[in-house]
Every structure is written in C-alpha cells, then in structure tokens.
Simulated scan of single mutants.
Amino acid sequence: MNNLVYCPRCNKLFARHFREVCNNCHQELEKDYERCIEYLRKNKGLTIQQLSEDTEISIKQITRWIREGRISLMDAPNMTYPCEVCGTLIRESNMCDACRGRLQKDMKNAQAQASSAIREFRSAGTGFQIKDKDRN
C-alpha cells in the first residue's frame, strides 16, 4: 500500500499513516493549539474572530479543533463557529438549524421521488425478477 502523499500545508512528501500532515507541520499545529488554548483560558469572552486575529491562527483551524472536541465551548460563552453549509455562526453540530431542516426536507423529497419512480417502473411491467430469467 502506497501511503506517500504531499503535505497540504508545506507540500513536502511524507508517509501518511495516522495524520493528514507531515510530522513537522503536525508539531507546528500542536504548538499553535497550545498557544490557542492558553490564550483562550486567559480571555474567556473572545469570539472566534478575535481569537483568530490575536493568535494568528485561522478560523478554519480553530473550528477543526472545536469539532474534534479539543476546544470546549463550555467556558467560552461568546465562541461560535461557522455552519459548514452557509457560514452562519453556531455553537454545536456542523450545521445550523435552517440548513439541517433544508437537508431533511430535500432528503424526504428525494425519497418520495425514488419511491414514486419505483412504483411507476413496477406498474409499467417492464421489470423482471431473477426467477424470470430461467423461464426464457
């Protein structure tokens, strides 16, 4: 199995086993994480934008740590992160309520359309079953 890939951060070739980035970038990310956590402990009322600006760590990376459970929002009342679909700021899950509702509605509609198409196909009599193959 070939696990040689280019690191998305520094573009160096590395053997990917457990991480998405090379060892050097992983160590840099861990240092950034520690700096971020320490800053957040001292400044509990920050928003994600303020934390990003003050620590020079991207909102995307901070959001990743929140979703991984490495940063808790329990003691950070003003901390929110963007919905993966529309970017609305949220405090839990990966989608806002509006996007989740739209997704559920779209899934329900797609399921209804699929069921309808199956019923039409069956009622047209154009389908066959495996047992019918032996009869011809």
Rank of each mutant, 00 (worst) to 15 (best):
I37V: 08
Q111P: 00
R70L: 08
Y39Q: 09
I66C: 15
F18H: 08
K60T: 07
E68D: 15
S115H: 04
E28G: 05
K133L: 00
Y39N: 13
R70M: 11
S72K: 11
R35D: 09
R122W: 02
I90S: 10
I118R: 01
Y81Q: 07
D32M: 13
S115W: 10
T47S: 15
R64I: 11
E34S: 10
K105E: 09
M74H: 14
A98V: 12
S123I: 00
G69R: 08
S93F: 08
I62D: 07
S123L: 03
L46P: 00
D97S: 05
E20N: 07
R100T: 00
I66Q: 14
G87F: 05
C83A: 12
S116K: 05
K44W: 04
R16L: 05
G101N: 03
V21P: 05
M79K: 11
K133G: 02
K31R: 10
H17L: 10
R102E: 08
L89T: 01
I130L: 04
E30P: 05
E30L: 06
I62E: 09
A124H: 01
N78D: 13
V5N: 14
A114I: 02
H26K: 02
D134G: 01
V85N: 14
T126S: 11
L40M: 13
L4V: 04
A117G: 01
C99I: 07
Q111I: 01
Q129F: 02
R41I: 05
A112M: 10
V5C: 13
T88Y: 09
N43V: 11
E120F: 01
W65D: 07
N3V: 02
I48M: 06
C7S: 03
C25H: 11
L103D: 02
I130N: 01
P82H: 14
P77E: 14
D134Y: 02
E53Q: 14
A117M: 07
E120A: 02
N23I: 08
R91Y: 10
V85W: 08
E56Y: 14
R41M: 12
P8L: 06
D54M: 15
C86M: 13
L46G: 04
C86N: 13
V5K: 12
D97L: 05
C10G: 02
N109Q: 12
D54W: 15
K133A: 03
G101P: 00
R19N: 13
N78F: 11
R91N: 02
V21Q: 02
D134P: 00
T80Y: 15
K31N: 01
L73T: 08
N24D: 03
S72E: 14
R135N: 01
S58P: 15
E120W: 05
Q104P: 03
A117C: 04
F18W: 08
R119T: 03
R16F: 07
K60M: 15
I118W: 02
R41T: 04
C36R: 03
A124I: 00
A114K: 06
K44M: 06
R35H: 10
K105G: 04
L89N: 12
M79E: 07
N2L: 05
T47H: 14
R67P: 10
F128G: 04
H17T: 15
I66A: 15
S116T: 04
